[in-house]
Design a protein around this nucleic acid. Structure first.
Ligand code: SF4
Ligand code: SF4
Lengths: 147, 147
DNA sequence: TTTAAATAGGACAATTTAGTCTTTTATATA
DNA sequence: TATATAAAAGACTAAATTGTCCTATTTAAA
């Protein structure tokens, strides 16, 4: 459903959101190291997020990336839209054709209901709500393979 | 959730299942043409499915691919397992770490419920149940981009 | 028995996604 | 003002996915 790039983006944003103050900046390499993500790729993603105003950045010594209260009020889906595009949740899981709500395949009900639910959760949960103190919930931010 | 390859596989199998008799074989190029899928790739996938006993094949003139009643009793998830591997449905949609049912992130409940439901539908719906007469339901088999 | 039609198999090509590396630009501070 | 530090930008590389193409094998039927 979500690309790796997008998952990296979510984790990075949540980490930044967990860092309380706007004066506390973290530079890209440190974020990548802390979250065990590929360094250069992470920095690229952070730059992309900054360009799209989902995180803030500051150049120079003591610079880095950070987040403010306003951004914390944005829903998680904004990150998905920024990285994977707005139609990431509008593609069919089976991929058939010329079907619709009126003319569905046997999967339609189940598939659509759950996609909508996932989407609505991503839309109603803000970055601030999702993020929990990093030190207490370190588990949240390091990728795993299998649930 | 499912790779393109896997979606092609599902569509091809459903098409074959919709062809009533075992004597009715369809050759790969025709399947690809009918379902508007890439020809050589489709044939490759059909060969892979045949090797894994999810469809049957016969060489030579009048040969092709087909399916019997026994195969129609298999659930759709078998196709997914054959093409994308058995853990396609055991990866987290967010990709965080060291979480569990006991120690979940805010998405866990929604995400897991969604995935389990989708998986159980794929597991309980057989190829035969899913397939409907092709001529009456041509819409089922041609890929679309967006719902 | 020859031939043509089909799958089987494997090498190869193209595209997308994931990721690195190098140079430029901005800025805090010594 | 000089310097070091960090983001910004963009060219490049690697890997995975998605596909093509060519040859071998099997088999129905003329
Ligand atoms: S009916 Fe719904 S689930 Fe089925 S192929 Fe169409 S969009 Fe996908
Ligand atoms: S708690 Fe569940 S949804 Fe959240 S990151 Fe872990 S496996 Fe994924």
């Amino acid at each position: 459903m979500l690309s790796n790039k997008c998952k990296y983006a979510i984790r990075a944003v949540l980490y930044l959101a967990s860092q309380a103050s706007a004066t506390k900046m973290t530079h890209g390499t440190e974020i990548a190291r802390l979250l065990k993500m590929p360094v250069a790729f992470t920095v690229k993603i952070l730059q992309e997020l900054a360009k799209k105003d989902l995180i803030l950045s500051s150049k120079g010594p003591k610079g880095g990336f950070y987040i403010n209260e306003q951004i914390k009020k944005l829903p998680i889906i904004n990150i998905v839209n920024a990285i994977d595009g707005a139609d990431a949740f509008h593609r069919c899981g089976i991929g058939l054709h010329k079907c619709s709500d009126d003319n569905p395949c046997p999967f339609h009900e189940t598939f659509k209901a759950h996609r909508e639910k996932f989407l609505s959760t991503l839309s109603s949960t803000t970055i601030g709500t999702f993020c929990i103190d990093f030190n207490e919930n370190h588990f949240l931010y390091v990728q795993k393979e299998v649930v």
